[in-house]
Amino acid sequence: MTVHGEPLQLGLRLWRWAWLWLAPLLLGLLYWALAPAGTAVRVAAMNWSRDIEVERQVQQLDSGWCDEMPHGAQAISRRKVDRPDSLPGGTAEHCRYTVLVWRAVRSLHSEGLAPTSPFWPPVPANALSSDADAGKERLGKRHERYELLLQSDDGQEWRCKLPMPRWQTFSTGQRLRLKVDRFGVADCSGIARVG
Results as ranks from 00 to 15, higher is better:
1 M>L: 12
1 M>G: 09
3 V>Y: 14
4 H>S: 12
4 H>D: 10
11 G>R: 14
16 R>V: 07
16 R>T: 07
21 W>E: 09
24 P>M: 06
24 P>L: 15
36 P>Q: 10
38 G>W: 12
39 T>D: 04
40 A>V: 10
40 A>M: 08
48 W>N: 01
49 S>D: 11
54 V>I: 12
56 R>S: 02
57 Q>P: 00
57 Q>W: 06
59 Q>I: 03
60 Q>Y: 11
61 L>Q: 02
61 L>R: 02
64 G>I: 04
64 G>H: 03
72 G>Y: 04
74 Q>V: 12
74 Q>N: 13
77 S>N: 13
78 R>W: 15
83 R>D: 00
85 D>T: 04
85 D>I: 03
86 S>L: 13
89 G>A: 12
96 R>G: 00
103 R>I: 03
104 A>K: 05
107 S>T: 06
108 L>E: 05
109 H>A: 07
110 S>P: 01
111 E>S: 08
113 L>N: 07
115 P>K: 08
116 T>V: 14
117 S>Q: 12
117 S>M: 15
118 P>S: 14
120 W>L: 14
121 P>T: 07
122 P>F: 04
122 P>A: 10
123 V>Q: 12
124 P>N: 02
126 N>L: 08
135 G>C: 05
151 Q>M: 08
152 S>P: 00
155 G>P: 01
157 E>K: 12
159 R>K: 11
161 K>Y: 08
161 K>S: 06
165 P>V: 02
166 R>S: 10
167 W>D: 05
168 Q>Y: 02
175 R>C: 01
181 D>L: 06
185 V>H: 14
194 V>D: 08
194 V>Q: 11
